[in-house]
Design a protein around this nucleic acid. Structure first.
Lengths: 206, 206
DNA sequence: GATACCATGTAAGTCGTTACATGATTAT
DNA sequence: ATAATCATGTAACGACTTACATGGTATC
């Protein structure tokens, strides 16, 4: 049985032949939307796929540096990929460090909690903006890129997923901040509230 | 430096002293909302925390089976936890196998893709219902459980996060199914469409 | 009688990160 | 000059899963 990373690599190679470096670039955190992995994991995994004959390599020598190794998916690789896709996956772990922090957030001073949340919201807003830009670029280039049978559909679907995920997370952070602020106000009904430590960016509603 | 799992354990022990088994039960997939881990990882990690003196153990002998080992967080453990909470986390990987499947979904027959999506939607609906029930149980028990300063707030926040995540994922699956169906209809404008193979449950809008 | 839950642990293996290692090319 | 990017790999370590190992109690 192959790892998820293997299938992610096969899915990328199914769109076009490319080098390990190209794959690593598309999977580089934090922009990798299909799957995220570092080159230290990708190169050995590619070698394994070649040994299993699900992927082929063509060595292209250059006058300088290491030879470029262009990988392409084999017929066996394609059928393994399609075979895997239709199987219903079992539930993923979905562990998020920030949920632990939220769980025990009552333990820290209100100011520190506020700035942590504002920080987090700001980070997510940035990521949302970046994803929206990528989607705009994709949908404007081809008029019907939203269509299921377009070659770019996979990319578009993955981007939409990432965007939805980010928006949901940001909304949750804003809710947390709201709860925190409401409680703090109740405890100290007027004035004398100190401004939150750290970075600004009050939660915006979008 | 400690792992995320360590902090999840500390966060649970901060609410009350409990055994490794208790912790493992709360972290058991797929219901673990704070963090998910198996006992095979939890017991060694607990032992490590004890050695670091962030956690204490009290052995309670019973006439049968292994002695129950009740763990509690130390003062050092509490301060380590609060110190960690306020630090902004770096971005998490968030790899989801299903995104790979969606990315290459064009490769499989429409019928197989439809039943894969329906299956996935059904799974998520079940999880959503289970989470809604847990939230109802929590909010009805204590009138003001939504308040930030309630002892159950952490649990409530984690549940809301999980619910939002599930709903978002389900919505994305329904969108995918809609695109797929629209394209299939365009290709075969009338009649002669075969019913989707596999389980039913047509996507509902909520 | 079989299954599930209570309750603890360890061992082997896989997945994934970080750092080491090398060296050319392009941009500031 | 300095840094970033192109381009490939390996080694050590940490995170996590799966299976092994044990044995009592309760439920169907």
């Amino acid at each position: 049985m192959l790892s998820s990373l293997s299938y992610a690599i096969l899915a990328l190679l199914a769109t076009k032949a490319q080098s390990g470096y190209d794959i690593a670039r598309q999977m580089r955190p934090p922009l990798g939307i299909l799957w995220q992995a570092k080159h230290g994991q990708i190169y050995p995994e590619l070698a394994r796929l070649v040994k299993l004959e699900l992927v082929e390599v063509e060595r292209i020598d250059k006058r300088s540096g290491p030879p470029r190794r262009v990988h392409s998916i084999t017929t066996a690789g394609k059928s393994e990929l399609t075979r895997w896709i239709v199987k219903s996956p079992q539930v993923r772990p979905a562990n998020d460090e920030f949920v632990i922090k939220a769980y025990a957030l009552r333990r820290v001073p209100v100011g520190a909690a506020t700035s942590l949340l504002n920080d987090q919201i700001e980070t997510h807003e940035h990521r949302i903006a970046a994803l929206e830009q990528l989607i705009d670029a994709l949908t404007s280039r081809t008029a019907r890129s939203a269509a299921f049978d377009s070659p770019r559909f996979g990319e578009y679907a993955a981007l939409r997923r990432a965007l939805g995920f980010e928006r949901e997370h940001a909304a949750w952070c804003r809710w947390l901040l709201g709860e925190l602020t409401a409680t703090a106000k109740r405890a100290r009904p007027r004035a004398d509230r100190q401004p939150a430590v750290g970075r600004s960016s009050v939660a915006r509603r979008r």
